[in-house]
Amino acid sequence: MSEKHQTWGWMLAVDFFFAGMGGAMLVIAGLTDLFMGPETSSLLGNIVGPLCMCVGCGFLILELGRPMQAWRVFMNPKAILTFGAWMMTFAIISGLVYASFGIPSELIFWRDWSGLRHLLVIVNIVTGLVVATYPGVLLARHKGRPFWTGPGLMGLFLLSSLVTGFAGHFLCGLILPPAAATVQGHLPVVLAALLAAQALLWIGYLWIKRTGTTAAEAASAQRWINGDLSGAFKIAFMVLGTVAALIMALIPVAVFQGIAAVLALFGGVTMRMLTVRSGTDRTFLPGEQKYRSRLPQGEEKFLKKIWL
């Protein structure tokens, strides 16, 4: 059996990245509207949030295969994948309608409906949080994948989604500044705080996996510490995507803060790529490896024989 049947690929990691960032951007827009007013977040950021989730959906459909049957994902109410698909759908629709309130056009006849806007703010916060956290929940439920199992991954994905969400909103604000710039100026400081928390939580997560869990979990964590994943984790994620981004975010110059946001996004993609790759480590049921060793590999003579 090929490895593709055993693990997910890079497209799922890209889906996790765009979906998490988009969900967090909805949460940030909703919270700033709720406490600071509707003009404190960039209109471009409000639009980009749900569009990012649309991109994530596209990669998910491609990863699952059979795009023309993608509707089946919505049909199993007991599956967590179905729950996530519906939440993402609600978040996309709610986010796009909410963003339309900032478009100065007479065609948007509902722009003055403050009740609808407040309702969408609440929906955006709730569904955005679910979408931002969902990838960690989805992976953590796989008990046969030692690096994923446990509640820790849920918090790490939520935190990373918030990091990328703040980075995305800040970049959008540089391109199309919000009408009220009070929040925009504080985004780099919040981003730096989240990056510091991200570094500490990842160190703690790997330490716990390495020292306080099963042998399989310790071995999977070792890949991140000094194994085949350690280079990308230490250099791409920790040094560039976290520490360097944190330092640049605290420099009160827009160019450096913009670079910090880009590095934070790069770190978010890297983290998801590495986490999905860690799914190649797994524990097996009794007799499962023996069964798989007897499956045809595709090169056997009996598979190539032409029967007349």
Rank of each mutant, 00 (worst) to 15 (best):
L26A: 08
G102H: 14
L156T: 05
L295M: 13
P296K: 00
T40Y: 05
S230F: 01
T213A: 13
W224I: 10
V131R: 11
G268H: 14
A216C: 00
S105C: 11
T214D: 05
C54S: 15
L156K: 13
L120M: 06
K304L: 01
P286C: 06
G45W: 03
A19S: 12
L44Q: 02
A196R: 00
V48E: 01
F266A: 15
L156Y: 08
A219W: 00
K4M: 08
G241D: 12
W148M: 13
L81M: 13
P178S: 12
I125G: 04
L159V: 02
Q184H: 12
L285K: 06
E300M: 01
G128H: 09
W207K: 15
V255I: 15
A70Y: 04
F17V: 08
V14M: 01
A236K: 00
R111Q: 15
M21R: 02
A215W: 07
G30I: 09
V14T: 14
F256P: 04
S105A: 12
L274V: 07
F109M: 09
R282I: 03
T283D: 14
L191Y: 02
Q6V: 04
L194E: 08
F83K: 06
L34T: 05
E63P: 11
Q222A: 07
V189Y: 09
T242V: 14
G22V: 04
I108Q: 02
G128M: 08
A264H: 11
E299Y: 03
G30S: 05
L171K: 10
I92E: 09
A24W: 00
A79C: 04
T270I: 07
K143G: 12
A192I: 01
T89W: 06
G20K: 01
V97L: 12
S42K: 09
E288Q: 15
V253G: 00
A249F: 03
V55T: 10
G258T: 10
I125S: 07
V255P: 05
A99S: 14
H186C: 01
A29M: 03
R210V: 04
V121S: 08
G37N: 13
P38C: 07
T182W: 08
A215E: 15
W148N: 12
F18T: 06
H142T: 10
I247V: 15
I306F: 03
A232V: 00
S41W: 08
E300H: 03
G23R: 10
I203H: 06
F109C: 07
L176D: 10
I108Y: 01
